[in-house]
Design a protein around this nucleic acid. Structure first.
Length: 424
RNA sequence: GGAGGGAUACCAAAGUGGCCAACUGGGGCGGACUGUAAAUCCGCUGUCUUCGACUUCGUAGGUUCGAAUCCUACUCCCUCCA
């Protein structure tokens, strides 16, 4: 039986605590009564990506333990730009763009939290609501007065940029984030802010501000989450196509599933702890299996399954699994046309006009090759497969190939890159 | 301000009149092996109408039958001296 762990104990087991304000006090506070906590997400793109996942899940973990999470969309701070973790000044997005991003992100966030829960429903807020109508004089008098320049300059996010340069705009960011914390504290009694490891400076600036402006003693907390790393030293969260987004239109559930499935042995247990809600016992079991039967890749399968279900839902998961099964077990040609158009929605595809085309041209059209030269090279290397049949003849025409239901060519290049060509 | 050195394909780095589409290493991509792994081995890595042709070696001109290689100007970078 899995013993019920205290929240902080659970987080510690999962390695999810990087830095924290007085942990003993926080533990006491969490055990005493539900806490209101928040985490902010700035709209810097039209979707969140898996780098945002840990903070989101952190809110969810707290909610599971009976606490009340607030997901804050940075509709205001997103107009300013956080210098934390950034080497250079960023260009500003227009208000319209940021507003568009905010809406998308708000929708995404809402999928991960329970807003209906009776006791401790999650809340969604947008700091544009208060930052947008802040007037300059009151801001400088009421908020700015509590920040000393020395304190601000000493912050890593600012200090590291003094050489390269930082605008007043980004310099002021920490004050705005601090003000968010203050505002949420006043409105909802928020006492804890969580964030990525680069947010420590901004978080402590916030607790500082609340203490000073509201004369609070010491009951304000901050918690940061470690940066996710990969054992091979490459950056976590990137695939060939770039970032792994949470938006199904930007990163298909199939690609998302594959991303997790391809996790290295050395990282998979760590990720199970970080990203899933599996119990300690379940994770230890998987660790055991990884030792004894690594080829089963049960840990990776479980991880991919849990994550895809969590982010995209049960239906998308089974679709991703179906595609995976067909693609990696060489059963593509046994699929029917309707199964293919259903299953290959997530695969780059293209419609072929005229069946007299050389296959070489088709490879370029679907994106399997950059040039004809490269296309021929792939074929000569035996890298190209059409409907499971290896094709090495570089002069072959499309109409001599057997299409599935006279309609589809499933083209594979290399071991796992698939492309779909539909004959018109 | 003065003196010298350099700019070559994704990166690093050879090449100093024809044998250069350009040595080599890294990276990347393919293949074999395998667990859709790691390690290893093999192949490819300018483009095309592929036994051939065309466009590339900072930019623009010039010399020559022929230039990445020589000359001129320009741009940028580095080092040393002031």
């Amino acid at each position: 039986m899995n013993a019920v762990m205290r929240l902080l104990e659970d987080l510690a087991y999962r390695g999810l605590i990087y830095q924290s304000t007085d942990q003993e006090k926080l533990d006491e506070r969490l055990e005493r009564e539900p806490i209101v906590l928040y985490c902010g997400f700035d709209p810097t793109a039209d979707s969140l990506h898996i780098g945002h996942l840990l903070p989101i899940l952190m809110l969810r973990r707290f909610q599971q333990y009976g606490h009340q999470p607030i997901a804050l969309v940075g509709g205001g701070t997103g107009l300013i730009g956080d210098p934390s973790g950034k080497a250079t000044e960023r260009t500003l997005n227009t208000k319209e763009v940021v507003e568009g991003f905010s809406n998308k992100i708000r929708t995404q966030l809402s999928r991960f939290l329970d807003f209906e829960k009776a006791e401790n429903p999650a809340l969604l807020a947008n700091n544009h609501d208060w930052l947008g109508e802040l007037d300059l004089i009151s801001f400088l008098r009421d908020v700015g007065k509590h920040f000393s320049l020395n304190y601000m300059l000493a912050k890593e996010s600012v200090n590291s940029r003094l050489e390269k340069g930082i605008s007043f705009t980004e310099f002021s960011y920490m004050i705005l984030q601090s003000y968010d914390y203050l505002e949420l504290h006043r409105r909802y009694g928020c006492e804890l802010q969580v964030g990525g490891s680069d947010q420590w400076g901004n978080i402590t600036a916030g607790t500082e501000l609340i203490r000073k402006s509201d004369n609070k003693s010491d009951d304000l907390f901050g918690l940061t989450i470690p940066l996710v790393t990969k054992s091979d030293g490459t950056k976590f969260g990137k695939t060939e196509g770039g970032a792994v987004w949470l938006d199904a239109d930007k990163t298909s559930p199939y690609v998302f599933y594959q991303f997790w499935l391809n996790t290295d042995d050395a990282d998979v247990i760590k990720y199970l702890k970080y990203f899933t809600f599996l119990s300690k016992d379940q994770i230890e079991d998987l660790a055991q299996t990884l030792e004894t039967a690594p080829e089963e890749r049960k840990a990776q399968r479980t991880l991919a399954e849990e994550m895809t279900r969590l982010v995209h839902g049960e239906a998308a998961l089974s679709r991703a699994q179906n595609i995976t099964a067909a693609l990696f077990q060489g059963k593509v040609s046994s699929l029917t046309a309707s199964e293919i158009s259903e299953g290959f929605q997530d695969v780059p595809s293209s419609t072929i006009e005229g069946i007299e085309l050389p296959l070489v041209d088709v490879l370029i059209q679907v994106g399997a090759a950059k040039s004809k030269r490269e296309a021929r090279e792939f074929m000569q290397n035996g890298a190209v497969t059409v409907n499971d049949e290896r094709v090495t003849d570089t002069s072959i025409l499309v109409n001599t190939l057997k299409a599935i239901d006279d309609k589809f060519l499933v083209i594979r290049r290399g071991k796992k890159k698939y492309f779909l060509a539909a004959l018109s």
